[in-house]
Design a protein around this nucleic acid. Structure first.
Length: 783
RNA sequence: GGGGCAGUGGCGGAAAGGCAGACGCAACGGACUUAAAAUCCGUCGGUAGUAAUACCGUGUGGGUUCGACUCCCACCUGCCCUACCA
C-alpha cells in the first residue's frame, strides 16, 4: 500500500446508518409470497424482552442472519422474521421490584431491543413482527386453548403441584431443578400444593414425539428428548392388600415377580393411611412429615442410605400368593409410575440396599447363564442381568430371552397384570397463578361446569388495573369485577378462570403468527401457511431441548390432528449455537462483572466488525470465551479490504499470466469452500477463507493484477461472499467499485470448477508413514 | 449412577484418511516516525544444529490402513445435561 490517506477512511458510524436507512426505505428485506421462487423459512428463537440485547443474542442472531442472507442470494425467497416472547414472570418480578406496570416495562424493553436488533443490520422483515402479549396475538393463543379443550386435549385435574413459595406460583416439572428441587428462576426449594390445574395431553403424543424420522436435528437434542420422554416397556401388575385394595405397580422386569419380597409406597401414596396398622401409625406419620421436609432441605447425594418405615400392612403377591410387607420410603416417587413398586432386592440395586438396610428377605429368581450360582446371603449387590428364571413356580426354567414375554402372557391369563408402557413424560401443566400471561378462556359455571368462552368473544382481555403483587392467589382473582360474568351456555351467574397460561404456550406457535401478524380471521393466513411452512432452519440454544422444542412439536401434532396445521413436524432442521463466555472463561453475569456489552462494541467498532468477529472467533455450535484484543483482527481485516479494493495501485494490469491464473484459482477455491461452509454452518472458516483470499489479493495487487479482468472478478466475487457477513461495508464497496444497488439483490456467484484445479501438485513420498520426499509434478501425469 | 460433547502451540481455532498447526490474537525482532499510535516486513510447537536438516509431536494405550488429529476398541481428564425412572 502506498499512501493510506489518498482515499477516505472507512467510517462505520456514517456508512452503517446510511445503508440501514436506505434498506428500510426500499423494503429491501420484505419477504412476500412468490410462487416463482423456492421458499426458505429461516427462524431464530425469539428473545424474551428482559431489557437489553446481550452479546448472546448477537451470537445467536448474526450467523443465522448471515445464513438467511446467503440463502437469499442462492435464489430462495427467504422469510427471516423476529418477535418477542413478551409474557412471563420476569416482567412481574421487575414490576414488583420497581413499581412499574408489567405491560409498560415489557413494551419499553421491546422498543429498546428492537432498536438494538436493527443496529445489527439484519435482514429481519419487521412487518412480520409478532409480540405474544399483544391482544391480537393472545386472542389466538386462547383460541388454540379452546380448540384443545373442545377436543379433549386440555383437561382439568386436582394434582399435587410444585409450588415456589418465593415466586408464588406453580411450576412445570421442567422448571424444577436439582436435587433440592429448587425453582429454576429464584433457586428457592419448591413445596407441594394441591390445586385444580389445566393440563394438555402431551403424553398422548409420547410415542410420536420419539420419532425423529426425516428430521435434520442434532443427535444431542434427539437424545435429550428421548431420555426426557423415557419410554419403558414392561407390565402393570395389581397387588392386593389384605383388605382387598388394589395397589397397581409398573415394572420393567415382570420376570422377577417371584422375587418380590416387599412393596414400597411413596410417602404421599393415597393408600398409606389405609394399610397402616394402628401400632405403626405414629412412625408412618412421622416419616411422611419428614419426607415432606426433605423437599425443603438440601438433599444429600443419591447414594445416601435408604430410609423408610414399615406400615404394618401386607400385600399378596398375585403370582405366588406370598404375603409381603408394605413399606413406605422416599426413594419411591409419587411423580413416576404409580407411586408404588414391588421390591425385588435380588435384582434391583435400590431394592437391594433397602433390604440390607432393614433386614428384609432376598430371594434370587434369575440366574444369569454364564455366572456362578447366586447365593442370596452372600450377595454384595443386586444382579440386574437377565437369565434363566429360578424359584419361580411354573415359570422356573424359562430362559432369559423368553422370560419377559412369557411372564406377561402368564399375568394376562391369570388376570393380574398386563403389558404396559410407561413414560417419564408428564402431561403439560399450563396453569399459572400469575397476572402477566394470557388468561385461560374458560368460565366456571356452577351448573354447567367449565365452559369455553365462545370464539366471537375472544380475546378474554387481561385487565390493566390489577394488584399484581404476589399474594399466593391469582392476581386476577383479586380484581373487584373482572372475574364475574355469565355462563355462555346457560346464561346464569358464573366466574372466569383466573389462572393464566404458561408462556411456553405462547411460544409454541409464534412461528405461525409471523406468517401474518395482522390477520384477524384465523391464527394465521392459510395462504401464507401453505407457502412458508414448515420452518426450514430453526436456530437457538440447546437449553430449550426438553421444554420449548417438545412443546412446539406437541402443539404442531395436536393441531395437525385438529386440521389446523399440516405435516408431522414444524421444524425440519435444527441447529444450536454455543455460548459466549466472559473473558475469564466463566458464564457472563453482572455479579462477576465480565459482561460484554454489544452496544459499546457497536459504538466502537461498528456492526460489521462485531458480526465478523462473532462468526470468526469460535466454532458456532461450541462458543468460546470472549477476547477483547481478538476483535482487532476483524477491524484490520475490514480496513485492509477497504484499502485493497479502493486504493489505486502503482502498477496496473501488468501482472504475469501465472499471477492472474493463481488469483483466479484461489478466488474460485474460496467460493467453493465458503459456499460449502455456509451450507454446513461452519461460519468461522468462511471468515478465515476470506482473510486468506485477501492476503493473496494484496500480493497480486502489488504484482500488478489491479485493473485486470481477473482482479475485477475477484473483487466482485469477494463482495458477494462478504455481503451476508458484513452487509454494510459490502454494500458501500459495491457502490464505490461502480456497481448498481444493491449487492443484497445479487445472485450467489457460480464456481468455475476448471479454474479451481491445480496445475501442479506436490506428491508426497512416504516410506513407513514417514515423509521422505516431495515432488512437484504436473497434475495430469499418469499414476 | 445414566447420557451427551470435547481434549491439537501461550490463546481462539484449521486440516472432508494424504505436507499437522490454515486464519486470527498475543508475543518477539525490524522498517517508517522526534516519539507514540497506525501501517508494513519478518520470526513464532519441542529438542539438537551457525545452517541446510534430523528426530519428536494432535490427552493415554492398543487396533485397522501403504498412510490416522481424522475410523474402531479401552482408558484418563474437563465441561454440560440428567438423576432413587421402578
Amino acid at each position: 500500500m502506498t499512501d493510506p490517506t489518498s482515499i477516505p477512511m472507512y467510517r462505520h458510524e456514517v456508512v452503517e446508518p446510511k445503508w440501514q436507512k436506505q434498506w428500510e426505505a426500499d423494503g429491501l428485506y420484505h419477504a412476500d409470497i412468490d410462487h416463482k421462487k423456492p421458499k426458505f423459512y429461516a427462524l431464530t428463537m425469539l428473545p424474551y424482552p428482559s431489557g437489553d440485547l446481550h452479546i448472546g443474542h448477537w451470537y445467536a442472531m448474526t450467523p443465522s442472519d448471515a445464513r438467511a442472507r446467503f440463502m437469499r442470494m442462492q435464489g430462495y425467497n427467504v422469510l427471516f422474521p423476529m418477535g418477542f416472547d413478551a409474557f412471563g414472570l420476569p416482567a412481574e418480578n421487575a414490576a414488583i421490584k420497581r413499581g412499574i406496570h408489567p405491560k409498560k416495562w415489557t413494551y419499553r424493553n421491546i422498543d429498546n431491543m428492537r432498536q438494538q436488533l436493527k443496529s445489527m443490520g439484519s435482514m429481519i422483515d419487521w412487518r412480520r413482527e409478532a409480540i405474544s402479549a399483544d391482544l391480537s396475538y393472545y386472542k389466538w393463543t386462547q383460541w388454540f386453548f379452546i380448540k384443545f379443550f373442545e377436543n379433549d386435549l386440555a383437561y382439568q385435574k386436582e394434582a399435587p403441584v410444585d409450588f415456589c413459595p418465593h415466586c408464588n406460583t406453580t411450576l412445570a416439572r421442567e422448571q424444577v431443578h436439582g436435587e433440592d428441587r429448587h425453582c429454576e428462576r429464584c433457586g428457592t426449594p419448591v413445596i407441594k400444593k394441591n390445586l385444580k390445574q389445566w393440563f394438555f395431553r402431551t403424553t398422548k403424543y409420547a410415542d410420536e414425539l420419539l420419532d425423529f424420522n426425516g428430521m435434520d436435528w442434532p443427535d444431542q437434542v434427539k437424545t435429550l428428548q428421548t431420555n426426557w420422554i423415557n419410554r419403558s416397556e414392561g407390565a402393570s401388575v395389581v397387588f392386593k392388600t389384605e383388605d382387598g385394595d388394589a395397589i397397581e405397580v409398573f415394572t420393567t422386569r415382570p420376570d422377577t415377580l417371584w422375587g418380590a419380597t416387599f412393596m414400597v409406597l411413596a410417602p404421599e401414596h393415597s393408600l398409606v393411611e389405609k394399610v397402616t396398622s394402628p401400632s405403626q401409625a405414629q412412625v408412618v406419620t412421622e416419616y411422611q412429615a419428614q419426607a415432606k421436609r426433605m423437599d425443603d432441605i438440601q438433599r444429600e447425594s443419591t447414594d445416601r442410605e435408604k430410609t423408610g418405615v414399615f406400615t404394618g400392612g401386607y400385600a399378596i403377591n398375585p403370582v405366588n400368593d406370598e404375603k409381603i410387607p408394605i413399606w413406605i420410603a422416599d426413594y419411591v416417587l409419587m411423580s413416576y409410575g404409580t407411586g408404588a413398586i414391588m421390591a425385588v432386592p435380588a435384582h434391583d440395586q435400590r431394592d437391594f440396599e433397602f433390604a440390607r438396610q432393614f433386614d428384609l428377605p432376598i430371594i434370587v429368581v434369575i440366574q444369569p447363564p454364564d455366572e456362578d450360582q447366586i447365593n442370596a446371603d452372600e450377595m454384595e449387590a443386586a444382579v440386574p442381568a437377565s437369565g434363566v428364571m429360578v424359584n419361580s413356580g411354573l415359570m422356573t426354567g424359562t430362559p432369559g430371552e423368553e422370560a419377559f414375554d412369557r411372564t406377561i402372557d402368564f399375568l394376562e391369563e391369570k388376570g393380574v397384570g398386563k403389558r404396559a408402557v410407561n413414560y417419564r413424560l408428564r402431561d403439560w401443566l399450563i396453569s399459572r397463578q400469575r397476572y402477566w400471561g394470557a388468561p385461560i378462556p374458560i368460565v366456571h359455571c356452577p351448573k354447567c361446569g367449565p365452559v369455553a368462552v365462545p370464539e366471537e368473544e375472544l380475546p378474554v382481555q387481561l385487565p390493566e388495573d390489577v394488584e399484581w403483587l404476589p399474594t399466593g392467589e391469582s392476581p386476577l382473582k383479586l380484581h373487584p369485577t373482572w372475574r364475574f360474568t355469565v355462563c355462555p351456555k346457560c346464561g346464569g351467574k358464573a366466574e372466569r378462570e383466573t389462572d393464566t397460561m404458561d408462556t411456553f404456550m405462547c411460544s409454541s406457535w409464534y412461528h405461525l403468527r409471523y406468517l401474518s401478524p395482522d390477520y384477524d380471521q384465523y391464527p394465521f393466513d392459510p395462504a401464507e401457511y401453505d407457502y412458508w411452512m414448515p420452518v426450514d432452519t430453526y436456530t437457538g440454544g440447546i437449553e430449550h431441548a426438553t421444554m420449548h422444542l417438545i412443546y412446539t412439536r406437541f402443539f404442531h401434532k395436536a393441531c395437525r390432528d385438529l386440521g389446523i396445521t399440516k405435516g408431522d413436524e414444524p421444524m425440519l432442521q435444527l441447529r444450536n449455537q454455543g455460548m459466549v463466555l466472559g473473558e475469564d472463561n466463566e458464564k457472563m453475569s453482572k455479579s462477576r462483572g465480565n459482561v460484554i456489552s454489544p452496544d459499546d462494541l457497536i459504538a466502537e467498532y461498528g456492526a460489521d466488525t462485531v458480526r465478523a468477529y462473532l462468526m470468526f472467533f469460535a466454532r458456532w455450535e461450541l462458543g468460546a470465551p470472549w477476547n477483547s484484543s481478538g476483535i482487532e483482527g476483524s477491524v484490520r481485516w475490514l480496513r485492509k479490504v477497504w484499502y485493497t479494493f479502493l486504493e489505486p495501485a502503482v502498477k496496473v494490469d501488468s501482472a504475469d499470466k501465472s499471477v492472474l491464473q493463481s488469483l483466479r484459482r484461489k478466488v474460485h477455491q474460496t467460493l467453493q469452500s465458503v459456499t460449502r461452509d455456509f451450507e454446513t454452518f461452519n461460519f468461522n472458516t468462511i471468515v478465515s477463507g476470506l482473510m486468506e483470499l485477501l492476503n493473496q489479493m494484496t500480493a497480486a495487487k502489488s504484482a500488478g493484477a489491479f485493473g485486470s479482468d481477473a482482479w475485477r472478478e475477484a473483487e466482485n466475487i469477494y463482495l458477494h461472499m462478504m455481503a451476508p457477513i458484513c452487509p454494510h461495508i459490502a454494500e458501500e464497496l459495491w457502490e464505490r467499485t461502480g456497481h448498481a444497488y444493491s449487492i443484497h439483490k445479487q445472485a450467489w456467484p457460480v464456481v468455475d470448477v476448471a479454474a479451481t484445479k491445480e496445475e501442479e501438485i506436490t506428491l508426497i513420498v512416504q516410506v513407513n508413514g514417514k515423509l521422505r520426499d516431495r515432488l512437484t509434478v504436473p497434475v495430469n501425469i499418469s499414476e
